[in-house]
Every structure is written in C-alpha cells, then in structure tokens.
Amino acid sequence: MNIILWITAGLLALVALAGGITKTFVPLDKLAQHDGAAWTRGANPAFVRTLGILEILAAIGLILPAVLDIAPVMVPVTAACWIALMIGAMITHGRLGQAKLVLVNVVYLALATFIVVGRFGTTPFTA
C-alpha cells in the first residue's frame, strides 16, 4: 500500500506541477486560448498566477516532506488542500459546461482523497 500511495502522490504532484507552471509562466492571453483554461479569460491575472504558485507548492508538498522526513504529515494535509482546489475547479468548469474537465477534476479529487485516507489512516508515515 505504501508504494501505491507514493506512486499516487507522485502522479498528483506531476499534475500539480504541470498546471502550476502553466498558470505561472504562460502568458495569460495565450493561456486563455486553450479550452481547458477558458475560465482565465475573465480572471484577474494575479489570481491566475496565485493559483499557479499554489499548484507548484502543492507539487512540492505532496513529495518533499516525506522524502526529507521533515513534517511528513504535510503530505496528506497538502492532499486535503488539493481536494478543496479540485472542488473549486469542478464548480468553475461546471459553470462553463465543460463536463469532461469536471470528470478529470473528479479523478484528481479521488487520487487526493486516496492519499488523505491512506496517509492519515491505513498507511501513515511512521518511523
């Protein structure tokens, strides 16, 4: 179970990193042209960049605390925060009628829930 949780956290960290880098470094007008980022067309640029930075921090928080064995409890805490982020993303994409993206967010939410339950419950990081 530990290995599956590590793999899940790694996959979710890659998703968070890719989304974070995109939102942080891709010019907003170019980002807004993508269907999945249609929500950015009316969004404040600072808000989009902030979300990007939070996603990069989530990628770090899903892996680094456990790897360094410094506050590994931050891994499931980060995953719980990711759940909140995905709920917001599902609402946003739902309002835009993007059912496929809502389903993608449901998958990410399920992965994060698996990490939360696994690391707080069945397979915590212990010495």
Rank of each mutant, 00 (worst) to 15 (best):
I115D: 03
V106I: 15
I63M: 11
R119K: 13
Q98F: 04
L68D: 01
H93G: 03
F25E: 04
L31P: 01
A79P: 01
A80R: 08
A79E: 13
G19A: 15
L51P: 03
V67D: 00
G94R: 15
T126I: 08
H34F: 09
V73Y: 08
V75P: 01
V73L: 13
L62Q: 14
L31Q: 02
A84H: 07
L51H: 12
Q98P: 00
L62H: 11
F114D: 00
F47W: 11
T126N: 11
I60L: 11
T40P: 01
A37F: 14
L96V: 13
A127S: 05
T126A: 11
A127L: 08
V107E: 02
T122E: 03
G121V: 14
L28C: 02
G19C: 13
R95F: 09
L64T: 14
A58Q: 10
A127R: 04
Q98V: 14
P65D: 09
E55L: 07
L103I: 08
L5H: 05
T50S: 03
F125P: 01
K23P: 01
V48G: 10
F125Q: 02
A127H: 05
L101T: 14
G94W: 10
I87Y: 14
A127G: 07
M1T: 00
G52R: 06
G10Y: 15
V106P: 00
A84P: 00
R95N: 05
V26N: 00
A32M: 05
I53F: 09
A99M: 05
A58C: 10
A16V: 05
V116T: 11
G42N: 11
G10A: 13
V106C: 02
G10P: 03
I87L: 14
I7N: 12
K100S: 07
L64V: 15
V107P: 00
G36V: 12
L17K: 09
A18I: 06
V116L: 13
W39M: 07
A32V: 04
K23C: 06
L85F: 11
T113A: 13
G19K: 15
I115L: 10
P45I: 09
P72V: 03
G19P: 01
G36A: 07
G36K: 06
V73S: 08
A79Y: 11
G88P: 03
Q98C: 02
E55P: 00
M90L: 13
V104I: 14
F25Y: 10
R119D: 03
A46R: 15
H93N: 07
G118F: 12
P27W: 07
M1S: 07
T123K: 04
N2F: 13
G61T: 13
G121R: 15
L54V: 09
P76I: 15
L109C: 04
A84K: 14
E55F: 11
R49H: 09
A66V: 09
G10T: 05
G10Q: 10
C81H: 09
A43W: 12
P72M: 06
M90T: 08
F114S: 02
T113Y: 08
G118C: 08
G10E: 11
A18T: 03
I70N: 03
G94L: 10
G52P: 00
V67L: 06
T123H: 10
D29E: 07
A13R: 11
M1V: 00
V73N: 05
R95Q: 08
Y108F: 07
A43K: 12
V77K: 01
V48A: 12
A46P: 00
